[in-house]
Simulated scan of single mutants.
Amino acid sequence: MTAPTLSAPPVIALLRDLVAIDSTSGSPGEAAVLRRVAAEFEGVEEARVAFAPGADGEPTALLVSPVVVGADRPLLVFASHADVVPVTDASAWTHDPFSSTVVGDRLYGRGASDMKSGLAASIVAVRDLLRQGAPVALAVSTGEEVGCLGAPAVVDLLAGLRVGAVVIPESTDGQVVLGHRGALWATVRTSGVAAHGSTPERGHNAILDLVTVLGRLDDLPLSSHADLGRETVNVGVVSGGSVPNIVPDVCEARIDLRVVRDDVDELVDWWRGQPEVTDVRVDLDLAAVWTPRDHPWLAGLDAPVSEAPASYFTDASVLVRSLEDGVPVVVWGPGDPTVVHTVDESVSVEAVLRAVEQFGHVGGRWAVEH
């Protein structure tokens, strides 16, 4: 990593340090990011830092909260994630993906937009707000990019604390996004009878059974939401058979349903009710998230409110199931959604600086009102 210049604002120096850590999902870099975040609160007497250990003993989530918070003072929580998606071909990048190179107003690197810029801005804002006695907190998870795996640990860390509002500082180009669809990922299996490929009539082809099932996708009982839009289905992976001269006895499809409902039993039951299907495994069940446009808290946010929901899901899908009814959750961060997960991912330096100011303003207002 090129060393930050002495004139670099603290949040940009911090962001460069975070981007320089290869925290690809499932790698040791995730825990390294959590420890780097914790180091930013050393010496902050008003901050309590807690880790949630994973099965291997490494931290899987982090919560920074006030040492003392009154029972009548709900917390404004900024919830980020530490992991990034893999770099598949570093040679395709103009700059090394973990060099955190700055050119003009852009800082380049894997995770610059998704979502280490939002994380860095949250760290700086929350640290300053805690020193002022504000009831704010910072949560950081791991494994978000592979199904929000660390978010349940964040829920555990928040147990016993009253949460009043949540900001997910994902890539929204500075707009306040009021929610997104949830996700139901399922593995659907059909089973047949193996036989020699030259005598297929002696067997039963599991692949053909699955093809028959997929031909009924238009019959899926998909719903719509006035703001989140219509539910969708994508057949992302199909696997079956081994060689051409054997009738396949097993075939599986991995299905991605983006949902606007919280109870997905009807959808799961549809798959299980297909006569050719022998097994359905739910791999991921994430809730839809939506904060009404007329929620009074939104009026105090220093940013435009998006007309559209986010296309992706976030840790909010896990967090909302632990919150009291009516707690607002928004997705709002400095990252550029057009470059997320791409070669030469980058973020605007100016946008990151603006996010620190905005988060500080919102947290200060929260402290006055709560």
Rank of each mutant, 00 (worst) to 15 (best):
G143D: 11
V177Q: 01
L220C: 12
L323T: 08
D249H: 14
A20R: 07
A112R: 02
S141W: 01
G335N: 02
V327F: 12
T291A: 04
S223I: 00
V85H: 03
T172D: 04
P53M: 03
T199E: 13
D227Q: 14
L14A: 01
G236S: 14
L138F: 11
A52C: 11
A165Q: 09
E350T: 15
V155R: 12
E58K: 12
V11I: 12
L323K: 06
P4N: 10
A303N: 09
E46I: 09
D56L: 05
G43L: 13
L158D: 09
D315I: 10
Q132H: 11
E45A: 15
I168R: 06
Y108N: 06
V238F: 12
A92P: 00
P4L: 10
G143K: 04
S113H: 05
A52Y: 06
L301Q: 13
F41N: 04
L107Q: 02
R293T: 13
A20N: 07
D325C: 01
L119F: 09
E266K: 09
L220M: 13
L14N: 05
A82Y: 03
L267A: 12
S117Q: 01
L228W: 02
V260G: 03
T342A: 15
S100T: 00
V318R: 11
V280L: 09
V140P: 04
L319C: 08
L210S: 04
V49Y: 07
E42A: 15
V318S: 10
V176A: 06
L119H: 09
R73H: 15
G111K: 01
R321V: 01
G192D: 11
L6V: 15
T338L: 08
F98P: 02
R131F: 03
T232Q: 04
D96Q: 12
V167T: 13
G43V: 14
L157V: 09
T60R: 14
S317D: 04
D219Q: 15
W271T: 13
E42P: 00
D279N: 14
D265E: 14
A165F: 14
L14T: 01
R48D: 14
A13W: 00
L286D: 02
D17F: 00
